[in-house]
Amino acid sequence: MAFESLQPKLLLLAAALLALFTMAAYTVYFERRISAWIQNRIGPNRVGPFGLLQPLADVLKLLFKEDIAPAAADRLLHRLAPMISVTAAVATIGVLPFAHNLILADVNIGILYILAITSLNVYGITLSGWASNSKYALLGGLRSSAQLISYEIAMGLAVLSVVVQSESLMTSQIVEAQAEIWNVLRNPLGFLIFLITAFAETNRLPFDLPEAEQELVAGYHTEYSSMKFGMFYVAEYMNVVLSSAVITTLFFGGYLVPFGHLFMSDLPAWARTGLEVLSFFGKTGFFVFVFIWVRWTIPRFKYNQLMRLGWVYLFPLAVLNLVLVALARMLF
């Protein structure tokens, strides 16, 4: 392909990456503000107006911190692990449709790609736990691998039910198939299962066992400092943003503007795209808020409870849901 034809894609990529990093950074800011609001505190409000420059200050601080690796650590893996985490998080962005025809790569296996890439995340966490050569980190890494593998199955089945409904693996097709009615209304059980597994996959409370700070000090990233720690941190928040984006895409009509068919056709093309992008990020933002809200309210699962929930409840439910959706698809 010639460079000229790639140019718009590259521009979009740059814009999307910028948006993602900014959103991840500001998710940290909003997490701190919202948690402060929940806990009757004020939260960061010193750097810039309303503390809006706080993420910038945090990144600067992390960059200037000393980078410490334990003496007995596996140097190569210790360095590689945070990179894997961030890469796995960033790569998901490739197949998310931000607006009509505004997508980096509209491949015909978009959904499979998302599942495959998010699975890579477990390598980052497990390897970091292993390479640190620390018991707490190891426990965190082991918990994480068991957790992610258990919940991926239920997640895959929930996604499959959406695929059955929209008869396509392409993310753009899945969004277009929701023009009449959002998937969350046609497939509420699938949405619930996906939401729970998304919490588990992002290692957020109530599923934050890998880094359970009160039990394992900081879990898999106990032995990380400076920007290596920062990368895990960024990866966690990127995962929150991207999970919200995937939930939006699969169940809440993606970029589709609610009641858009009433007035969208009269608008010029640029306004339509703008509205769609706004709609996409608005819905994503709402789910980011849900992620934060839940985190600061609910206690954490225990390891055996987590496994029971995953295998005894979610897995059979997801299978049942898939069968129901498939039957409904066949009959109506």
Binding site: S35, Q39, N40, L205, A212, W296, P299, R300
Partner: peptide, 16 residues
């Protein structure tokens, strides 16, 4: 105790 179980906000509420 509730914070050790993972719900951090409770700690701040009782501290108020």
């Amino acid at each position: 105790m509730v914070m050790d179980a993972g719900a951090v906000s409770m700690f701040l509420w009782t501290f108020r």
